[in-house]
């Protein structure tokens, strides 16, 4: 009886206890539990924890977020770019454009291949409406579990 086998039995037993469809049959689970003391013990302990948890309720908060949120929506709607961004837009974009133009005029083949790659990547992410910089919470979970 391997650990992996025990774990699948425990997962299946908990699913069954939750009233869900279990990946293993009740007979398979029962047969294993009758021969495996550590599994029976752990399942019993988890049942107790579930019982304690299931009699609890979520705390309900009565905070009204609208006044602050309304201010933020108004501020966002009527806001113009901050001064430093306006300076950047005013000088940065023309300078950047000029630099790109100069590079393109030199027609370095490697530059073209890089530009095409960057444009393609941006196009793919825009099409998928995906944010490549989004934090993946699932990775955090896996890290914490191991």
């Amino acid at each position: 009886m391997t650990d992996i086998n025990c774990e699948s039995i425990r997962i299946a037993a908990m699913a069954l206890a939750d009233g869900e469809e279990s990946p293993l049959s009740t007979a398979e689970i029962q047969a294993h539990l009758s021969n495996c003391e550590s599994c029976s013990e752990e399942i019993a302990q988890l049942h107790d924890t579930n019982k304690l948890f299931s009699s609890q309720q979520r705390l309900r908060y009565q905070t009204d977020l609208w006044p602050q949120l309304n201010d933020r929506i108004q501020a966002t709607a009527g806001s113009s770019p901050p001064f430093r961004w306006r300076v950047l837009l005013l000088f940065g974009i023309p300078l950047f454009g000029y630099r790109i133009l100069m590079l393109v005029l030199q027609a370095a083949p490697s530059l073209w291949s890089k530009l095409v790659t960057v444009i393609l990547v941006i196009a793919v992410f825009s099409y998928l409406r995906a944010n490549p910089f989004k934090i993946n919470s699932e990775l955090t979970l896996e890290g914490e579990l191991t």
Binding site: E7, I11, M14, D18, E20, L46, T49, L52, E138, L145
Partner: peptide, 23 residues
């Protein structure tokens, strides 16, 4: 937005960890 099997597995491990903390 995770598969059903992952829900089962994570629930089991989460409950186990909670149990460990409680005891």
């Amino acid at each position: 937005e995770i598969p059903l099997g992952t829900v089962m597995s994570r629930l089991y491990h989460g409950r186990k960890r909670l149990r460990e903390k409680l005891v």
